[in-house]
Design a protein around this nucleic acid. Structure first.
Lengths: 155, 155
DNA sequence: TTCTTCAAGTCAATATAGTTGACATGAAGC
DNA sequence: GCTTCATGTCAACTATATTGACTTGAAGAA
């Protein structure tokens, strides 16, 4: 029996709601999935996954970042960083060189191939956001940003 | 050396932006984190984690759901469901009984203890959303829902 | 020059969350 | 009685993370 038509990922479940905010709660879940779905598929085709993308994303925006700083931003241990980072170096999507004056740390940079993959993966995510923002108009997009900011900064 | 003050989770990185929508992209990432952070901490104290919570969440809204239907909604294999589900049964947060007329399937229900944990965990997530919505007002919340719906339904 | 510090790299063991494949059980329907 | 179907379970594997312990190699200071 073929699975009832689900091109990719899971359909939104539409469970009965027990609370006022259940719909919003589920939207956050499916929104996250919706944004990352195509990017993850693209990355999988390249033999990469989300952790690799996160590394590429950060290095693209902080060229010559040291490994310690990268660990801090990603919020993972250096052992957890080790495998994906080495894969990216082996595949020549990243380069590392010693700092000229601060020879203890290694500075990371994207190669052209790395930049291309980072851009394509991030483009998939931005495309989903752009289409949603286009439908909502500028005021809707602004409101979305404000609400997400408040959620993100929850302390 | 103590980590530079980060009560829980990671601070928002504030990377330089390469694209218009990078800020939105990062907001989605940190928003997801912001919503789930306290719930995850609460669950960890109970010796549970997000997969357990997802099971409890669904069963709370679909009492007497069969295992096959639960698998479909969660989008995981029955082998992946097996461990967390059995833990919840052992801990008596869930009960399972055979259907009276359809004796092949097992029907799942929350116990009182299960309901309590599901509520508290989901309350942590809803609290974050409620505070953000309160700040944004009804129009902002409505706009947020519309944008998230468009992102979630990205096909 | 040795000693210490520090960034980075590596090894081992463990946990969690998932996968596919194979097979058992037990009730339902024909 | 044979088949179907929901469930359960075993094994092997992958990926992503953790903590702890240790090495390497350069920098800075005594």
């Amino acid at each position: 029996m073929a699975k009832t038509s689900q091109a990719a990922g899971l359909h939104r479940a539409s469970l009965p709601k027990l609370h006022d905010l259940d719909a919003a709660l589920e939207l956050m879940y499916y929104g996250w999935r919706g944004m990352t779905l195509e990017a993850d598929e693209y990355l999988a085709k390249q033999g990469l996954s989300r952790p690799h993308h996160r590394i590429l994303y950060v290095v693209a925006r902080r060229p010559d970042i040291a490994i310690g700083a990268l660990i801090e931003i990603l919020g993972i241990s250096k052992q957890a960083l080790n495998r994906p980072l080495n894969l990216l170096l082996e595949r020549k999507l990243l380069t590392s060189k010693r700092a000229p004056e601060q020879h203890r740390s290694k500075l990371l940079r994207l190669t052209e191939a790395g930049r291309r993959i980072e851009q394509k993966a991030s483009d998939h995510e931005r495309k989903v956001l752009r289409e949603a923002f286009d439908r909502a108009g500028v005021p809707g997009a602004t409101a979305w940003m404000a609400v997400m900011g408040a959620i993100a900064d929850n302390n």
